[in-house]
Design a protein around this nucleic acid. Structure first.
Lengths: 348, 348
DNA sequence: CTGAAAGCGCTTACAG
DNA sequence: CTGAAAGCGCTTACAG
């Protein structure tokens, strides 16, 4: 362990017998430097064990860190269990990566200190975030940091990447209605940050913070105004199964169809149905949302709305690049496509 | 759009009629500041629309960015499709998050520019990385940036989080041998960065860069020295299926058992077997590795080695925190546990 | 092709 | 409790 202080560009320049400016140019080949000078600088760096310019200093000087924040409201585990989020993340990286940006994962749950606000990001993408983060977003905007939101409640100054959640869910509901269903229950994504499961009530909807979940409820209710149902803690098969067991247990109150707000939830509902000895779609029709590629034979059969996750991510990435370049990004909205599977049929 | 330059701490201090030092203290409550002074500063900030100290400047001054790099050799999509990687990531975040650190995703595939070396990270975690990144790791070390490797080939100066890959795979092989198998094939993880599938040959093993995959091959061969097999492009069900179809298609050369290097691969092999009309474990025994919780009925039945992914991530996180605190982190190695499922039986 | 100067925006000893 | 000074390590006009 040497006590020696770490070498800096200045010390390298000194040893090489050139100015710091020249040494800087040599490292960045961002200017005209003679081959021999460059060699001298590189030699000196080698001698001193200098590993190149410090990114922290560089980012202060340049005003750019090359980092894009990705803001998730769930834990990493929950967020990435959903293939949809992965597809979107991949889409973002697909555009921002080649432009030299890396993704910083920012979860609300992480620290007491707001990592979102104290992180040296050049831009941020919000993944379906609730008003809880509004204040922090305001801070980012005040700093001049571009913000893009995927399926957020529209916020002034934030570029929006939208999805036809309401219309898409209405399509599914109409499909069910067309088959003759009238007794339909909802299994929703998280509606607020309470972290608890409950029935879907007017009161709950009134204080819902998840734009996406709420829109999907509204879409279903445009066709089935009285549809009730259960909320979950998020998009997982387990949660779907739990809701399914609660919803389907009593033959008296059992619906003939379930509108699950994600494919993962739908698979869970189908699993619950199987456990209760119910045939899908014979005894129960189930629809999902997303059209994700899950390694699950059941999911492949799902009647669902296929949404373009990767493309949404790309659009977000493109938006970031535009805003970073000082141009005015364009909000875009994506459309989901109905996919008829084998999990819906007329009621008995 | 105002042309006004963004406010700084200095401008806020000036408006508040205090020094920059005092303003700084007011924002960080890191020193004794009178309530009235703090108010003045905060008022001035509000007036100017100042959103708080710039993280870039702060990180230069403090020498800390609060960012931990996570280095993945695959694309995000591939890396996170494997639940094992997610569990590890979650374990890392579990320890580093509360300490105020966020995770920066660094993929080799991303940019031409090395995002790994130019990123303002305080520390880095390598996910099973190959010698390809050795040079970059050397740069990090020269900068005094602590590096922790999960299942890497041991590198001097890097804290290692190990797994008993060799012994664990030997256990599986011995289990198969105990059942009476002698004709066993391997389905491996990526052995090098070639991005192509091939047979497992001596030549290939000689130039393998994936420590984990190689160790697992060796473990199997300690029991079945002549075991051949196929490599894949990574840990997915699809890849397992592709290898399975190739391996099991010809009844003449068909093995009686397959050692897949991950549960995902094993599920794929089983799927291939089903497509070929082979019963598992009647016609074919299959073992996996990881013990991941996949939403797949088949995976739940797998005979496999259960490895502690979350704990490994936590250990890596703990190591980072130790190193960041200037203490000497300890390399640790984890042990996998044999779990007998329903996918192995004596050969016909 | 090279150098001197300024400054990115902040925090931290050090005095008072 | 507050302020003046130094400096974190670099890059970028600007001159020459």
């Amino acid at each position: 362990m040497s006590i020696a202080t770490r070498p800096t560009l200045a010390s390298v320049a000194k040893l090489a017998g050139v100015s710091a400016s020249t040494a800087s140019l040599a490292f960045n080949d961002s200017g005209p430097v003679s081959a021999s000078t460059r060699e001298k600088v590189l030699d000196a760096a080698r001698t001193l064990g200098y590993a190149g310019p410090d990114p922290r200093a560089r980012s202060l000087r340049r005003g750019r860190s090359g980092i894009v924040g990705v803001v998730l409201e769930e834990s990493l585990r929950d967020a990435f269990r959903d293939p949809m989020n992965l597809a979107m993340l991949d889409g973002i990286a697909d555009l921002t990566g080649p432009a030299g940006n890396s993704l910083l994962l920012l979860t609300e749950t992480a620290a007491g200190r707001s990592t979102l606000v104290d992180a040296p990001v050049d831009a941020a993408v919000l993944f379906g975030c609730s008003p809880v983060v509004d204040e922090k977003v305001a801070i980012l905007l005040r700093r001049g940091i571009p913000v893009v939101a995927i399926e957020g409640r529209p916020i002034p100054g934030v570029l929006d990447i939208g999805l036809d959640n309401r219309e898409a869910t209405r399509s599914l509901a109409e499909h069910l209605k067309g088959l003759g269903h009238s007794d339909v229950a909802l299994v929703t994504l998280e509606l607020d940050r309470d972290r608890r499961r409950s029935r879907v009530t007017q009161k709950l909807l009134a204080r819902a913070t998840s734009h996406t979940a709420l829109e999907r409820v509204h879409g279903a209710r445009e066709v089935f105004p009285a549809a009730g149902g259960l909320t979950t803690l998020g998009s997982t098969v387990d949660e779907g199964r739990i809701a399914g067991l609660a919803l389907l247990g009593d033959p008296e109150t059992r619906p003939t169809a379930v509108i699950a707000q994600s494919d993962l939830l739908a698979v869970g509902v189908i699993r619950a149905a199987a456990e209760l000895g119910l045939a899908v779609p014979g005894d129960l029709s189930v629809v999902g949302f997303d059209g994700v590629r899950i390694d699950d034979p059941v999911a492949a059969e799902l009647t669902t709305m296929v949404q373009p996750g990767f493309a949404k991510g790309q659009a977000a990435g493109r938006g970031i690049l535009e805003l970073l370049a000082g141009r005015e990004g364009r909000s875009v909205s994506f459309t989901s496509a109905f996919r008829r599977g084998a999990t819906t049929a007329p009621p008995r």
